[in-house]
Amino acid sequence: MKILVCISHVPDTTSKINFTDGDTKFDTNGVQFVINPNDEFGLTRAMWFKEKQGASVDVVNVGGAETEPTLRKALAIGADTATRVNTEAKDGMQVAKELAKVVQDGGYDLVIAGRESIDYNGGMVPGMLATLLDANFVNNCISLEVDGTSAKAVREIDGGKESVSTSLPLVIGGQKGLVEESDLRIPNMRGIMMARKKPLNVVEPTNASAETTSASFEKPAPKGDVKLVDADNVGELVNLLHNEAKVI
């Protein structure tokens, strides 16, 4: 089985979000970038397929040279090769089209992407990619097993979960549950050394066009101060929630 894991390069969850150039660009100053958490769960599940079922695992990112340290980290975790499509990621459709080319050229059976990237939260690349490829698609995937060309997956739904059967070629939008938090791997020294020698291929884009433009950004209005209620006067909270906030 040939697996491709899509890796989004995103600001660390603790990052302060600011914009520059008249609020038209995300300010990367002082921001630490990491593998998108949803993708890291998927990559870790892919490593399981590699170790238990002899799958090959490649990773891919659509982005500029600045994303390479994130791809190297994925190699250090255990991916075999990395590909970077050398173009700025503009919107979900453009990224999905660039990825579709990589999947077709590489003849992948299983594509593991994250349910969403924690930067622009689009939640659309996996579904668009699957549809462009005419592959099967399971979103919010919290469990995946593959046997030959058959697959069994569990999808998180509102208020529960749903088990589905499907077949390869398959694209999933993954999240926590694919593996547990405690299964995530911190690259060790050997992994990091080996990652330096693994291929990181840079390919030129097909120049797919974006369909949406995020022209400007803004931050939420600052919040007023908290209203404190005395621990001995809990009834006052009920009163405020009813009469002032009008939420109960």
Partner: peptide, 20 residues
């Protein structure tokens, strides 16, 4: 969860730009 599952598929089918 269902609409977010369907929407990207629909976007490709309709050649529609999608904002979520």
């Amino acid at each position: 969860a269902d609409s977010k599952y369907m929407a990207p598929v629909l976007a490709v089918n309709l050649n529609a730009g999608y904002a979520s």
